Amino acid sequence: MRLMPGTREKSPAFGRALATGLVVCALLATLATLLVPVQLFGESASAATNTVGYEDDGGGTVSTRYGPLSAMDRDFVRKVRLAGLWEMPAGRQAQARGRTAAVRAAGDHLVAGHTELDLRSRQAAQQLGIALPNRPTAEQQGWLGQLGAASDDDFGPLFAQLLRRSHGKVFALVALVRDQTRNSVVRALADRANAVVLDHMTVLEQTGQVDFGTLHSN
């Protein structure tokens, strides 16, 4: 082959070096592509934890006869207890004040479901050495106050909206705990809570008074 003026024939070694360089560049690009989703997934997982309201008590993970007990596990057991402390009274109000059969039925489900979950959460706390609250939070007391102050006409829609929003938030925590816990007592509580909370969400929606357009606005 005749070369053009001013050019030199490249050696076979140069060709091999060029090919090797291209392969290395391709491998690095592939590795970078794989690493980015991992990093993003890690950030998303952290954000999901914050979204569901998991509160770290600073106690770390401790060993129990039922498996490791994490801060998230303890927070979950406490939140099941807290849910019952205000949702059972709210359910009783619905039983007494509901203008429709659907609202009264939702009240029945809330009282029955949280009576059971409250017992289970107290049993779990005793087994695992978790201190439980005995009063609703200030925010929960505020919701009970709103329900108590509402007129009979306004009670049904307010009840459905407040309780459906609350159950939607705790449902996300239940799912996260059920997925990640390594403690058999906490897992059993999460299993039952999952079924009860889903039932409550369903009967609240069946009242026909849940405004889905504003459900996640607060």
Score class of each variant (00 low, 15 high):
A193C: 06
L69T: 03
L117M: 08
G156C: 08
G168P: 03
A29N: 07
G42Q: 15
D75A: 10
V36M: 10
L132N: 02
P89T: 07
A71C: 12
A149F: 03
E55V: 14
F159W: 00
A17L: 12
Q180A: 07
E55I: 10
G129I: 10
D73R: 03
R192L: 05
D75W: 10
A48L: 15
L198C: 11
D75Y: 08
D199S: 06
G84H: 00
T30C: 14
Q206H: 09
T30R: 09
A48C: 11
H216T: 10
L3C: 06
H109F: 11
F14K: 08
Q161Y: 03
T137M: 10
R122Y: 14
A150S: 08
Q93C: 13
Y66W: 10
T30M: 07
A45D: 09
S46F: 11
M72L: 09
A19D: 13
W143L: 11
R92I: 02
T214K: 05
L18I: 10
S151F: 12
T115S: 13
G156W: 01
R65W: 11
Q126F: 12
Q39H: 13
E87H: 06
A125N: 09
F171M: 12
C25F: 14
L215I: 05
A102T: 11
A105M: 06
L110R: 01
A101Y: 04
L215Y: 03
W143D: 05
A94W: 00
R81P: 01
R99S: 13
S121C: 11
D199G: 04
A125E: 13
R192V: 12
V203Q: 01
A188W: 00
Q146K: 13
L69C: 04
R74Q: 15
A83W: 00
A125I: 06
P68S: 14
A175C: 10
A150R: 00
G98K: 00
M201I: 08
H200T: 02
L198V: 14
L40W: 12
Q127I: 02
E43I: 15
R187Y: 12
T61N: 06
F171K: 08
L147W: 00
A71L: 04
D154K: 08
A193I: 01
G213P: 02
P89N: 11
A175N: 08
T115G: 12
N50F: 13
F155S: 01
R187P: 01
D152R: 13
Q95L: 13
L163M: 09
W86G: 00
S11R: 04
P136F: 01
V103C: 03
S121E: 02
A195R: 11
S121H: 03
D118W: 08
D152H: 06
L204A: 01
K79R: 15
Q95E: 07
V185Q: 02
A96L: 07
Q206N: 14
L132P: 00
L22I: 15
F159R: 00
G129Q: 09
Q180H: 15
H216N: 11
R104S: 12
T214W: 02
R99C: 06
G156K: 00
D56S: 14
A131D: 15
F212T: 04
G142Y: 12
D154L: 07
M1F: 11
G156M: 02
Q146M: 14
L3D: 07
S166V: 03
G6C: 05
Q95K: 13
A90D: 03
D56K: 08
